Structures are given as C-alpha cells and as structure tokens.
Simulated scan of single mutants.
Amino acid sequence: MTSFASIAAISLDLDDTLWPFGPAVIRAEQTLHEWLLAQAPRTSTLLTSPQVLGALRTKFEASRPDLSHNLRELRLGSIRMALEMSEEDPALAESAYDAFFAARQRVDFFEDAFPALEWLSARYPLVALSNGNASLKVTGGHHFFKAALNPESTGLAKPDAAIFRAAADAVGCRPEQMLHVGDDADLDIVGALAAGCHAAWLVRGDSVGGVDTAPAWTRGGSAPHLVVRDLYALCRAIDPACPVAKQMPAAAFA
C-alpha cells in the first residue's frame, strides 16, 4: 500500500467537486435570459425559455471546434447568434455576457468544502484545476490555493496530461508527487493517471458529478488510487484522526 508520504501537493477540480455545477449554470442562464428580454426585447420570440440559450451555445460550439477551450468566446458567440437571429444589436453581447458571468460565479459550496480545504491547505499546496471558467477570487475560497489553472489561462484542458503537469509545475513538484481530486471519471481520473499523477475519484452520494457509469478503468484502463464519497473522507484517508473527517470513511489508498 502506498502511503501519503509521497504526495507533495494536491490539485482539485471545482465544478461538482467543491460546489454543484448545475444550479450555478441554471441560475446564470436565467439571469442572461432576463437580461436579454429586458435589453433586447425582440429576442423574446426566439428565447422562449432559458434552456434555449444552452441549446444555442451547443449549436455554436459545434460550428466552432477551434474555440472548444474558450468558454468565454463560446458563450459570447451564442449570445451574438441569438441577437442576430432576433435582429437585435450584436454589440449588446459583451454586456449580456457580463451579466451571465457574474451570475455564474454565485455558487453554493458543498458543506464539506471549506473545512476540508482549510485542513488540506495547512498540509499541502493546493492547485485548482478546472475546465470551467469560475473565478475563485469571486466565488470565494481562493486563499486556500497556491495556483488556479483552466483552459483560458493555459490553453489546455483536462484530460490533456499537459495541464496536470502544469499544475505540478505551478507548485514545484513532479506529477508523481501530486494527487488530483475530481468527480469526472474520464476528465479527472483518466487524465491525471495519464500524466503520472495519483488520482482520487470523488463520487458524492447525491451523484451530482459527471460520474461515468462505465469508467475507463472498467474497460481495461488504470483505476484511481482512491475513491471517496466526500472531501471529509479524503481528509480521513490522509489522517484517520483528522478532526474534520466526520463522515464516510475512504477506500484504501493503493
């Protein structure tokens, strides 16, 4: 059994790891919908519900695969599309995006997030590693982290091994000295393992994350070193006497 003695740093996913992603996006698209109806009223014929905005973003993304890692430009492009289709001024897109982005940053942290981050950050340098565009300086919690990486800042996205290696570089350790924690079986776990990192798969009891019912390791890939139900369990795996680890026990760190 490998001990945590070899771990020098921890990277953590954000969406569905520290907070539920779905409610934040629903709230942001509702805010954007209301903004557009108020500031560009002719969009009301097209935007019959906030869900239409999500469908337009998906359509725009399919037409611009070159922007797949640029969430800002994908959202801006879909807003311009809605404005142009409604014969409204596409120059309104920037202000509309600002309203969306501000609402996107209003997240509700899981109850285990801050206690676990406080305990972990006292023992390891932490790196936020996300494919999303949430800003920890706005959401809160940035003081726990030494660095924050995402596709906008690096031009890379999970599961590319290069972004995990960049996370290790950011805190001065080797990939094999880093433990990555995330909810997505393919993006987080397969990506981290391919980069040579240790990996902890977070499978919350309410199944909020991108949990794959047939993860890659069931198809012949490498399995995560650790599976936890919450961040308290991660802390318990590191130290069974951890005072914040008050919920479910972790699996063995293999």
Rank of each mutant, 00 (worst) to 15 (best):
M1W: 02
S3L: 08
S6G: 12
A9N: 12
I10L: 12
I10F: 06
S11H: 05
D13G: 15
D13Q: 13
L14R: 11
D15C: 14
F21W: 13
G22E: 15
A28R: 01
A28N: 01
E29Q: 15
E29P: 03
Q30W: 07
T31G: 00
L32C: 10
H33A: 09
E34D: 14
L37E: 07
A38G: 10
P41R: 03
L47R: 04
L47H: 06
V52H: 11
L56D: 06
L56K: 10
F60M: 08
E61F: 14
A62Y: 12
L67Y: 08
L71K: 11
R72D: 14
E73H: 11
E73K: 11
S78Q: 08
R80H: 04
R80G: 08
R80S: 09
M85E: 14
E88N: 01
D89V: 05
P90A: 04
P90N: 01
A93G: 14
A96Y: 01
A96W: 00
A99D: 00
Q105V: 06
R106T: 08
R106E: 13
V107E: 06
F109G: 10
F109D: 07
F109H: 11
F110H: 14
E111G: 05
D112L: 10
D112H: 08
F114G: 04
P115F: 00
A116K: 05
L117N: 13
A122Y: 09
A122R: 15
A122D: 14
Y124W: 15
L126F: 13
L126A: 14
L129H: 07
N131V: 08
G132W: 02
S135I: 00
L136C: 10
L136K: 13
T139W: 02
G141R: 13
G141V: 09
H142D: 15
F145K: 10
F145T: 11
A148P: 00
T154E: 07
G155E: 05
L156P: 01
A157G: 04
K158H: 06
P159I: 03
P159F: 02
D160G: 09
D160T: 00
A161M: 04
A161H: 04
I163F: 02
I163L: 09
R165L: 02
R165D: 02
A166K: 02
A166C: 01
A167M: 09
A170T: 10
G172L: 09
C173S: 01
C173A: 04
P175A: 01
Q177M: 04
M178F: 05
L179A: 03
V181Y: 04
G182E: 06
D184N: 15
D188Q: 10
I189K: 08
I189M: 10
G191L: 05
L193C: 03
A194M: 06
C197T: 14
A199K: 11
A200T: 08
A200S: 12
L202W: 06
L202G: 05
V203E: 11
R204A: 10
G205L: 08
V208Y: 11
V211G: 02
T213K: 06
T213A: 11
A214T: 10
W217A: 00
W217V: 00
S222A: 14
S222V: 06
A223T: 05
L226V: 12
V227Q: 12
V227E: 13
D230H: 07
Y232R: 00
R236D: 01
R236Q: 14
A237Y: 05
A237N: 05
A237S: 13
D239Q: 08
P240Q: 06
A241P: 04
A245K: 07
K246V: 15
P249E: 04
A250E: 05
A251N: 10
A251R: 09
A252C: 08
F253G: 03
